[in-house]
Design a binder for these strands. Structure first.
Ligand SMILES: [Mn+2]
Ligand SMILES: [Mn+2]
Ligand SMILES: [Zn+2]
Ligand SMILES: [Zn+2]
Lengths: 152, 152
DNA sequence: CGCCTATTGCGACGGATTCTCAATAGATAA
DNA sequence: TTATCTATTGAGAATCCGTCGCAATAGGCG
């Protein structure tokens, strides 16, 4: 269990808010923190069931929201359709390059973005909570394989 | 008709690709370019019908995609659910601040973002097509009305 | 242990978009 | 102008991605 401290934080968060520590919550938590990739609700449900856990789709969705609210998990829109989830690495923010040909996702660290975000919000009287930033395009491999950049 | 040149471009685009110039396409085009705001497919359908045009929902969706592909219209995810569309102002890129309390959308011009995007893509061997950048938070008005920033 | 109530599972429901397919109507050439 | 070819349309069913309602279950506390 390489994510023991986060697990303890999660359990403490639950207790602090009068929420219950259920096996479903722990299994879901462990699954997200075991994965080092972007994973969607359906994939999480499938892997949990494959590992013998008994959990329903609604519970997966409900508890993903709960973990997002508690700040342990991030919910990102990578493609056009569903949300993906990833556990948060504290202190190391990143955003995503998404290949529209092969769906590959590359993370990039963006020190300048936080500063820019602060400045823009200051200028407009906004109080920022979080941002979504994705760059869509073609990855290196797809370019070499001859995919055409942009419209047809 | 204050968008005559774009209209001609659209028609030429269609002809160049062996696509037909239909009244439905022109009506939809005119509606998007008449609006100076972010509008979704359902709203477009409703206003077209209210103006006496005969057009179906499927046609609206199909032709929105077509206009996005031809580079005249941008498709942005402002809330969590549906897409919104806006006509492109060439040479003046912008992104969006979205208030999570009142759904207000404020546009901001971001000269630094293009440069950053280019640099990040160069470093990762990516060929960028476009990006999605939204900052979620609380607008000035909602802050004054006492909305609580972030969690709970 | 026993109560209280938060949480769960199941299946129905919902919004947004896409699909299917027969009918319609632009474009082109004679 | 008319015939022909086929892209496009309309209508509604289907799909995708979640969310909801509610009865059954089971954590947490005294
Ligand atoms: Mn990531
Ligand atoms: Mn805009
Ligand atoms: Zn690729
Ligand atoms: Zn607001």
């Amino acid at each position: 269990m390489p994510h023991q401290p986060e697990r303890k934080t999660f359990i403490q968060n639950l207790r602090d808010h009068g929420q219950r520590v259920t096996p479903e919550r722990l299994a879901l938590f462990d699954e997200i923190f075991a994965q080092h990739r972007h994973i969607d609700a359906e994939e999480l449900l499938t892997s949990l069931l494959a590992k013998g856990h008994r959990i329903s789709r609604a519970t997966v969705y409900r508890n993903l929201d709960l973990m997002v609210d508690s700040g342990l998990v991030r919910k990102v829109r990578l493609g056009q359709r569903r949300f993906h989830f990833e556990h948060i690495h504290p202190g190391q923010n990143h955003d995503h390059l998404v290949c529209s040909e092969c769906d590959r996702v590359v993370e990039f660290v963006s020190p300048a973005i936080s500063a820019m975000q602060r400045e823009i919000c200051r200028a407009h009287g906004f109080s920022p909570d979080h941002h979504q930033f994705q760059i869509l395009g073609l990855c290196h491999d797809c370019l070499e394989k001859g995919a055409v950049p942009s419209g047809t």
